[in-house]
């Protein structure tokens, strides 16, 4: 068994490790990620974040999304898989949309990959009506995203859902998705990482 990031072999050190694998990253690689594991409030909803978006996390996400390293899909949620399953039991995970062009190039949906090992039902009910990436956009332009998220037609949404994304920066995509959901839905929010600098309205 090798660490998925650095490729160094990982050894079993405790009896606990022997019977159930605790992580897919080695301890050094995992230690570089800064763990938050906090529940915050955003737009009146509960928002749970696991990590801070720091350089180590960013480079891992880059390798996963841009270098298209599909093997990395378990690294984000593997240590929390049981906790998340218990936390969100009875809910359906709704993934926020990614660009169709990127999706085509990658051949896999990066969010679906992250959440596939949880054993919770996953849906991708949103799409963007305009081809645009958030990278390199200012906070103001990102705000405009709200208007560009639409709900696919012909999908019946369950009542209890989790809106899930990989990184929350300004929260505009989340806001966009929230605004198109039917009013009576019971929503909680989840993001793997949070960029700590420019969040607005998150407490």
């Amino acid at each position: 068994m090798r660490c998925l990031m650095c490729g160094r072999p990982m050894y079993t050190t405790t009896i606990n490790d022997l019977f159930s694998r605790q992580d897919v990253l080695c301890a050094q690689c995992r230690a570089e990620w800064k763990r938050l594991n906090r529940t915050l409030r955003f737009e009146g909803k509960k928002l749970h974040v696991l990590y801070e978006y720091n350089p180590a996390f960013a480079s891992c996400l880059l390798q996963y999304k841009e270098c298209m390293d599909e093997a990395l899909k378990p690294v984000f949620l593997y240590p929390d898989r049981t906790a998340l399953k218990l936390r969100y039991i009875g809910r359906t995970i709704l993934l926020l949309p990614s660009e169709p062009r990127k999706l085509q190039e990658r051949g896999f949906s990066h969010l679906a990959g992250m959440f596939e090992g949880l054993g919770l039902p996953v849906l991708e009910p949103f799409y963007k009506d305009e081809e645009r990436s958030q990278k390199g956009h200012s906070a103001k332009e990102r705000e405009a995203m709200i208007k560009h998220i639409r709900l696919k037609t012909g999908i019946t949404l369950p009542k209890h859902v989790v809106l899930a994304d990989d990184v929350i920066t300004t929260g505009s995509t989340m806001k966009g998705a929230l605004s198109v959901l039917p009013e009576r839905t019971d929503v909680v929010l989840f993001s793997v990482a949070m960029a700590l600098r420019q969040h607005q309205g998150i407490s």
Partner: peptide, 19 residues
Amino acid sequence: FFYHGSKGWYCRKCISFGR
């Protein structure tokens, strides 16, 4: 270091240069 993804086998050793 090889992984079978949705588009077929690729090498993870040089993944930092793209898939």
